[in-house]
Design a protein around this nucleic acid. Sequence first.
DNA 1: GATGAATGAGGATTCATTCAT
DNA 2: TATGAATGAATCCTCATTCAT
Lengths: 215, 215, 215, 215
Amino acid sequence: MSNSSEPVGAPRRRRKEARPSELTAAALALFVEKGFAATRLEDVAAHAGVSKGTLYLYFDSKEALFKAVIEEGIVARFVAAGEQAAAFDGTATDLLQHLLLAWWEQIGSTPLAGVAKLMISESRNFPEVTRYYHDKVIVRGRALMRSVLERGIANGEFRAVDIDSAIDVIFSPLLMLVLSRFSLAFCSGSDDPKSFLKKHIDLVLRGLSKEEAGR
Amino acid sequence: MSNSSEPVGAPRRRRKEARPSELTAAALALFVEKGFAATRLEDVAAHAGVSKGTLYLYFDSKEALFKAVIEEGIVARFVAAGEQAAAFDGTATDLLQHLLLAWWEQIGSTPLAGVAKLMISESRNFPEVTRYYHDKVIVRGRALMRSVLERGIANGEFRAVDIDSAIDVIFSPLLMLVLSRFSLAFCSGSDDPKSFLKKHIDLVLRGLSKEEAGR
Amino acid sequence: MSNSSEPVGAPRRRRKEARPSELTAAALALFVEKGFAATRLEDVAAHAGVSKGTLYLYFDSKEALFKAVIEEGIVARFVAAGEQAAAFDGTATDLLQHLLLAWWEQIGSTPLAGVAKLMISESRNFPEVTRYYHDKVIVRGRALMRSVLERGIANGEFRAVDIDSAIDVIFSPLLMLVLSRFSLAFCSGSDDPKSFLKKHIDLVLRGLSKEEAGR
Amino acid sequence: MSNSSEPVGAPRRRRKEARPSELTAAALALFVEKGFAATRLEDVAAHAGVSKGTLYLYFDSKEALFKAVIEEGIVARFVAAGEQAAAFDGTATDLLQHLLLAWWEQIGSTPLAGVAKLMISESRNFPEVTRYYHDKVIVRGRALMRSVLERGIANGEFRAVDIDSAIDVIFSPLLMLVLSRFSLAFCSGSDDPKSFLKKHIDLVLRGLSKEEAGR
DNA sequence: GATGAATGAGGATTCATTCAT
DNA sequence: TATGAATGAATCCTCATTCAT
């Protein structure tokens, strides 16, 4: 789980720059696995190869660590996705396909997808972080998808569907995939997530497509 | 945490009949709100209007209470739903519509829907309960829906769709609704769940329908 | 140190009424001995013959325990002293003598005298408690002594001395006695506190007396 | 806490000459303010403008720092006072007055007075340091005052009072002043310590004086 | 059955101390 | 010499669980 690109016997000292993300990565894994309350900081520390006290050099409290876990990487990644979409030259169809696949590559298939499950589990315990996540991830994610759909509708690629419903339909299987990975398998896609995703994309695009409406 | 020495479905050792469902109801509310680990039994007892010690007259441990919360009402309700479906006289279309609305009335809109969120949050901590939930709820629910779809396809109401994909498409918005109620609002349906649900039923039925394929 | 008026093998349960003062007594002894920060609550509990957790049934935190230690008995005792003084029939000379001896019997020679040393040590760490102690003990104590001196001056027993200075002179050896008992022996009275106190009373009364001023 | 393996007065093992008194000064301020146990070495270091580790270049442990704080300046200053007294030419009256004022100027009004409050608070935790302080400060201080009183009695300036009692009477208000500065104000002298002190000196000298016994 | 006082193992947090740089 | 990142023992506090009443 810990991607150790460093030599095994390397000294553990003097890591001040790299430490926080090592710690949040370890914390994410355990928070997703056990939940916030059931995760012991000692285990987080052990997971990251440091001692208990070291955590407190970087985070004031368990709760601060939780916040950092959520913030870590989320914003940056969404900014990147937004820029990609804005600069995209191809069709809306291609863009939609690209975005969902990119989400899978960069988030859905990585430990970062655990953030979604973590937020589902802990949202009630951290209202402030929940608002942050809602504003930075959900609202932005929906806005990004909205712009794609609007572009597609405007240039005649897509039918004039109800956009919010379409976003729901597009996003809900992604959530199902995440939950399959970190929780229960509600859906049938847990065996082969990638093909499940491609089938989903296919379905969505066919449903949106203006051509061959009769299928 | 999940050292479960006895099988979930095994007969409880004592006082099964007397076990007040007020206790499991209170526990469900708090487990869903705060998570299993972060819920204090003292709060559960207070919520149910009894003393801390009384809980132990009915449940051997916090974990046993958790299991009881999951079992409570779930099995009975699914049995009822299965019987209803088996005895249903009308069209598959009507049955599908009926089942989803019944789910909303009897589960989705009630505190019982919290069980789903609870299972999502705690599945990793209670593998055995998760298996139980998977077998009793997910597998049965999918089987029930499968029989409806197969019946509809057989009698020519529905197109010959891929059934597992159809079940995913049908169930995922239900999950979204639950998460909207007890966690984050990922979807746009949190404002008016019932109309969201009806719109969803409408969409599904139209998508399944053999007639007016060209829409 | 623990005045055990109960049978040794007596069950430790069901003591809810008596517990708090047992706990504050144990806490006082240790706080005075080691200071607030250096005292472990586990030791306090052991001193009182209970477990660590029991402390938290009666006091919310270590700091709450500290406050309770200071409040415990202080107010009641000062009220009693004030009433005694108000109802006193004899001369101011007798009353002054009586008050100082009563202080010694009821406070100075008992563990309660430790409260003064504790306040000296911890005043800076607990400004709020310090204000309370100042208002309830120091101000009231000085007011009580002031009334005695004023009475003595009014009826011609005492010379018209500067009252605040007289109070300082009267009280400072009491403080020295306390410090001798619980801290350093700055004064020569640590060997025989009672005779030290009597010599002091004698000195004070002779200094205040209007008669035989030339001595 | 007070496991002191080496005698206090023993020669420090290293760097005695280089040991910056800024460190002991900072430590004194914080020890007096918060107490020994509640003072963090990190704060001491920050107060002195050095890093935490630097403290350990000069002091082997927190306890060693405590000892150094007590030793620092105390001995030297008392030696000086003793020499001044021995070489003093004037009357005992003048000498007594001079000594008390000198104490105020060089100790009582400076941060060094905090040492007394610190010893009061921590004496029980550091028996060995307490003995050192007792021998070096209290015993010497009383001896110095004793010699002054004896000189005054011998040459007819003072009445033949009980010397130990007189020393108590002379020193106790000094203690009150210190406690007023660093702890609670038990006495009335906290507003204007210097005039309080002068009034005290006046009182003492008048009480000792052989002349005008009738006042 | 019901209560709630008591327990003590467990975990978050602090901070004196070390040591590589 | 000086630093400050790292450590882990120590301690406050919580809470599941027990049991005398």
